[in-house]
Write a protein that binds this DNA or RNA. Sequence first.
DNA 1: CGTGTAAGGAATTCTGACACG
DNA 2: CGTGTAAGGAATTCTGACACG
Lengths: 97, 97
Amino acid sequence: MDYRLKKVLTIGAVEELTGLSPRQIRYYEERKLINPKRSAGGTRKYSFDDVEKLVAITEKMNRGISTFDIRNEAKREDGSLKKKMIEGQLNSYFKRY
Amino acid sequence: MDYRLKKVLTIGAVEELTGLSPRQIRYYEERKLINPKRSAGGTRKYSFDDVEKLVAITEKMNRGISTFDIRNEAKREDGSLKKKMIEGQLNSYFKRY
DNA sequence: CGTGTAAGGAATTCTGACACG
DNA sequence: CGTGTAAGGAATTCTGACACG
């Protein structure tokens, strides 16, 4: 019903809206961070909600958080947020030095 | 900004959302009832707003109103609504008998 | 781990035209 | 007038793999 949840966007549209490459978008799907539908022919279909999730994912990736941790964060929906933030900081640290 | 105005849907998505054929969708564009954008490669890109317009157009077509009159209606934004409704009834009449 | 890329194929869309009415 | 369809081509997307690190 809500436009935000309609799975109608092609990967090209998502690419344009998020700035991410198709490779990254497909990879985040492989890591279960997003869950597009498929057309009868097999092409992926995303929602604007997926686009928003990808933007949030991108921010976390930039902070050095792994797809694995992002996945867990998403599942816990929040929970031990502080612990995760520290992990993020640590990951970020090891990446930079 | 608003999802409703983003030109990101392919004609296939619009087909699915409206139930119209690609032929019909392209024809309504030719008659200036909608105005999709184009990708760099030339594929049409529609918004959810376009989808809503198409649904409204479909209703009017079913009442026997011509694309020409629908176009005028859209331009006047309302105006002589009664007159138009009568025209619609007449068109509908001639189509049915 | 996260992402780029070349490869070959399949799905999607495009245009212009003929058809019917 | 409004819409279907076959035709040929171009744009878009898909998967699996190799590469780098």
